[in-house]
Design a protein around this nucleic acid. Structure first.
Length: 471
RNA sequence: GGCGGGGUAGCCAAGUGGUAAGGCAGCGGUCUGCAAAACCGCUAUUCGCGGGUUCGAUUCCCGCCCCCGCCUCCA
């Protein structure tokens, strides 16, 4: 079965083949955050989808080069730094760091580069691109001194979004009387400085100002990855105008197809509405962690639904994630215990089966639900074999190997939490009470442990203490 | 109005022209001092609605309804 992804360009699944001659290198660009506040978990849904994509490509042997931009200059960051009374960089830095912390908490792999829009080399690249676009008649400087892209000279404009530009209906978000643009749809490449920008300004052949949002991605992507990318991702709300603009700018300069596969993630919803800063119905990762959930639980909750389907965020969903992870943890722990036993003649048969189904499901446009379905089926079968004593140490090791392989994609293995001394002591006391058949006392100790967040249970091999929820 | 995404059990969700994976929750059972975990069984004659094609449709075709998003700087 081949690897295939749904391409927004064609609105159809397409077999994936990288551009690189080696057939292995994959160049991937993913739109990153604007660092004017903390990212919300809807944003992270997109980053988790991209993480799943990268990890699965790597599992399949591809070498992924990924770039994610950090937008550290725009209207919101400028407004924010002025309100805070600090320089722009000082304002954006803590949010940038918080973003990286959040990525780590969600176990999202680091990209190879996180270029910032304000870096001099990138601003220089943006200016160079704008110059070329003007030379080619694809951009012009208007009376307000800003430079705009001339969409009517780029025939492909609207192709990605499948928009017929003549039929667009204004939602009121665009100001028709905005300066001297030739066409309402022309977007800013270079925004002329005005007083509201304060000290935020760069020199350019068109006067001082700052880059438009879209040009940032075009410049940084081509600088770091080259003129042609294999995959470019983002949320569906980026299709138009952002990605459309990126295509226009980049192809306007290079004359080559910018991106082969455009992949877009559906929104995270709250109460069946898009989670967004402007609606105010959002949770940051910090908000969710503050409720006692872990990054890995959020990872599972946001990753378990196919990326092109809307996902409604609920606390019930978080609890469900916790339970499901507990099931996985328990299974891994049982396999580990069994695997540690003396190797004996392998006599397992009923727990062996196809293990490729997981990866093949992901090959099919990252069908995570089917992949997880297979995982849980496997868990049930191997548990049954463990219960029945028909799964030996060698087989357990085999299943652990399989788990370790698919977990390079899932990144859901629980962290080993060492049991604190006071908890161990309570456990010991309970064991003593049980030996003495002092059931009431042992049950009280069990409750006490539960109140501290530890679960104790009795097995054939004695008591076992595990952290509830968590890690 | 244009362009998309979605509508499958109480909730989340996969899926196929041949009679509905999996997870969570719930109920009953095995195990346990009691639990927990694990396992076993039960929980959609039915896949938004109405037509059509077909031996047979949740799956294909036509029409409609509902939810969500984009339509010029939102992941």
């Amino acid at each position: 079965m081949s690897l295939r992804f749904f391409n927004t360009y064609s609105r159809a699944p397409e077999e994936f083949r990288p551009i690189a001659a080696d057939g292995r290198t994959v160049k991937m660009y993913t739109c990153g955050p604007t660092v004017y506040s903390y990212a919300h978990i809807g944003n992270f849904r997109a980053y988790l989808f991209e993480d799943l994509l990268q990890r699965h490509l790597e599992l399949r042997g591809f070498k992924v080069q990924r770039v994610m931009n950090i937008t550290d200059v725009d209207d919101k960051t400028i407004r924010g730094c002025q309100e805070a009374g600090v320089p722009l960089a000082q304002f954006t830095e803590p949010f940038t760091e918080a973003f990286f912390d959040d990525l780590a908490a969600l176990r999202i792999k680091r990209a190879d580069n996180y270029p910032r829009a304000t870096e001099e080399q990138h601003v220089a690249a943006m200016i160079a691109m704008i110059g070329t676009l003007i030379e080619r008649g694809l951009a012009y400087q208007a009376e307000d001194k800003s430079v705009y892209f001339r969409i009517k000279n780029f025939a492909e404009y609207g192709r990605l979004a499948h928009f017929n530009l003549d039929e667009l209906q204004s939602t009121g978000r665009v100001k028709n009387d905005e300066y001297e643009k030739e066409s309402v749809g022309d977007f800013a490449l270079w925004k002329a400085w005005d007083e509201a920008d304060g000290p935020v300004r760069w020199d350019s052949p068109w006067g001082s100002g700052r880059p438009g949002w879209h040009i940032e991605c075009s410049a940084m992507a081509t600088q770091l990855l080259g003129e042609q990318l294999d995959i470019h991702c983002g949320g569906v709300d980026n299709i138009f105008p952002h990605h459309e603009a990126e295509i226009a700018q980049t192809e306007g300069v290079t004359g080559k197809q910018f991106v082969r596969y455009w992949m877009h993630c559906a929104h995270l919803q709250v109460d069946a509405q898009k989670m967004s800063k402007s609606l105010g119905n959002f949770y940051t990762l910090r908000d969710v962690l503050a409720k006692g959930y872990t990054g890995r639980e959020v990872r599972y909750a946001l990753m378990r639904v196919h990326y092109r389907a809307p996902l409604n965020f609920t606390w019930e969903g978080m609890d469900e994630a916790r339970q499901a992870l507990g099931r996985i943890d328990e299974w891994v722990a049982r396999l580990r215990a069994k695997a540690a036993e003396e190797n004996v003649e392998r006599r397992t048969s009923n727990a062996e089966g196809r293990t490729e189904a997981f990866e093949e499901a992901l090959d099919d446009d990252l069908n995570i639900s089917a992949a997880l379905g297979f995982l849980f089926e496997t868990i049930r079968q191997t548990n049954r074999a463990l219960d029945g004593g028909t799964l030996d140490a060698a087989a357990a090791r085999g299943w652990l190997e399989w788990w370790n392989r698919i977990d390079t994609v899932l990144a859901l293995t629980g962290e080993d939490t060492s049991v604190p001394a006071n908890i161990t002591a309570l456990g010991e006391a309970r064991a003593q009470a049980r030996l003495a058949k002092e059931w009431r006392k042992s049950d009280e100790l069990r409750d006490e442990l539960a109140a501290l967040g530890w679960e104790i249970r009795d097995t054939k091999d004695g008591q076992k203490i595990t952290k509830r929820g968590g890690a």
